[in-house]
Design a protein around this nucleic acid. Structure first.
Lengths: 336, 336
DNA sequence: TCGGACCGCGGGAGCGCTCTCGGCATTCCG
DNA sequence: CGGAATGCCGAGAGCGCTCCCGCGGTCCGA
């Protein structure tokens, strides 16, 4: 970008590059797009001209003719509050970003909280605007994935749908992770293991609850919403109704943290009197007192895998829907 | 979007809408863009046709002629680790997003960590691709803001530059916040107040340190990098060299959390023996033991204000550079 | 009654690119 | 040595939109 010896003040066009290199537009286009049908001599000429002029292809013009936008939407259906609080999202965003950057695709982040935003988003998610969409943190039986698929917008979601759906997804083994956590409690000799569940309109909530049930079958359960307050309230309820409990499996670290607070206030020692295990292995797990034993999920790998699935769809045009479930791992700390 | 009675399988074009409404292309364009120069009758006709056909304007075609992309880059210069850990980013992203959505602009999130990503990003940030850029968490004297400004890409940064620069920015009153925290410690009768600083190549690190100096002048200081580990290490060093200290001001909550751990291990009671104050008022501040007194900054307002500044630049074409500093507030909890 | 201002509108031009097709060299084979 | 195959290239067409020019009609003041 040094020699701006062209009439227009703006950036140079392909045509100008061609003129400078003494070749036709087609040849420049071929070079830019890495076609093999160019002689070494012409290629060199063009590359020099591009270098001299500081040419950058115009995305809009390209998109107009190729019908591809080279951008991918990452859609998060989440209230502001949770989006702040959960490192999970940050990590997903980060890992998705790194893969997309490597492929020269731009990541358009869309956060849908309010209903109007949701509506606007639906109008936006078109092949006109994005080549594909990554859906994060869907609630209940959201019709959006189906709608997008119908519109021909390739879609992959993070997290298993509550009810089976013909859309690819990547998920952590929530059920297995919960099972491992609760089994561990049992192996430690805990007799009365309770659970604090997540919201039942979200797949992780359901799956973690099922994992718990796989092991205990009939233990006491209280419902939460993944948030801290709800964890505290659930814990209070559990203590009142099942004072004999000696272990708690919470479906999120936030709820576990809330439970920890209540337990301490009630004079129960953790882990001596009551063992506690959370889920997510988030930062706060390392900052509670005692540090929280928690179920780790490979968030970064999940993010990367999700993008890979989507890109495969875009490239291959293969309408194969796939399900990928990644293993979880119990991280032992002081609370259990 | 029901009647697809046109030849092409794809989405309807402006031309098709015009044909259906029995008007010219120009009129449809005027309606779509909200021009006043349209008779109510024609407008109705066009609106109905748009409705029937499910017409959505083609962004690429529009961009090609208007030379605007209707998208804004949000650039985060941060290693993966910090991006995960700090809710700050999530909150900024969220608040920025909400403003942009309302204006029908798309937010392109770019995370630059690795040097190659950084290089690629520089190539990307052109008027060809984005209308403007929001810069987050810049380190040292990054030349990027100046480069962008020179290229004609309107830019606003979050966080004051280390050295004065002719680029608009929005920042929290880091210095004032630090001053308030340290003054509070002094008012509580603390005699020997130490500080754990952030990295000195980042403006918040410097400003919070200055705020501390404004009050104490000659107190003991140890350097950290905003991360927890560094906080713990700094605390160890301080305890060794200044065992008489009875208060610590840490420039981030993470570092304060690390310090808390070390203090407990050293047998110091908080806040009885040593008072601790952090900065950011992040989630973890509520989960340490004891809960952390911390300096709150209005992150959401900062995000919104930043976008507003940028949009003003875009609209007004006024090359006015502005500095906005938002107030901070001390949130009292158990640790001080 | 007539000229001009003004409003609403249609349609040509052109944004910068890719795709495709045909043409010219060059090479290779029979 | 002729014709076909091959490699490389130039340029026309067209993607869907906005911008702008100019036309016809209406309304008003002279």
């Amino acid at each position: 970008m040094r020699d701006h010896s062209n009439r227009s003040a703006g950036r140079p066009t392909l045509e100008e590059v061609a003129a400078r290199a003494g070749v036709g537009r087609g040849t420049v286009s071929r070079v830019v797009n890495g076609s093999a049908q160019v002689s070494p001599k012409a290629r060199k000429l063009v590359q020099d001209a591009i270098e001299d002029l500081g040419y950058v292809p115009n995305r809009a013009a390209r998109a107009l003719v190729t019908q591809r936008t080279d951008s991918i939407a990452l859609v998060v259906f989440e209230s502001g509050e949770r989006f702040f609080a959960e490192p999970f999202f940050g990590r997903i965003v980060q890992s998705v970003s790194s893969v997309l950057v490597a492929r020269n695709l731009q990541m358009v982040l869309m956060i849908a909280q309010a209903p109007e935003e949701r509506r606007q988003l639906e109008g936006y998610l078109t092949r006109q605007h994005v080549d594909g969409a990554l859906l994060l943190s869907l609630h209940g039986d959201d019709p959006l994935p189906a709608l997008l698929e119908e519109r021909g917008v390739p879609t992959v979601r993070v997290g298993r749908p509550v009810h089976p759906e013909p859309v690819s997804f990547v998920d952590a083994d929530n059920r297995g992770g919960a099972r491992a956590a609760v089994s561990y409690l049992r192996e430690q000799g805990r007799r009365c293991i309770a659970t604090i569940t997540g919201p039942m309109d979200m797949a992780p909530g359901v799956a973690r609850y099922q994992g718990y049930r796989d092991v205990v079958g009939d233990g006491p359960a209280a419902a939460g919403d993944f948030g801290e307050i709800s964890g505290a309230m659930a814990m209070e309820w559990l203590l009142t109704n099942y004072p004999q409990l000696d272990a708690v499996f919470a479906a999120s670290d936030m709820m576990a943290a809330g439970a920890l607070r209540v337990l301490r206030r009630a004079g129960r020692r953790v882990p001596e009197d009551v063992a506690v295990i959370g889920f997510d292995d988030s930062v706060i797990a390392r900052h509670t007192d005692p540090p929280l034993t928690s179920v780790y999920q490979p968030v970064e790998q999940m993010g990367q895998e999700t993008v890979r699935l989507l890109l495969a769809k875009l490239d291959g045009e293969e309408p194969v829907e796939r399900e990928t479930v990644m293993p979880t791992r119990l991280i032992l700390r002081g609370s259990a």
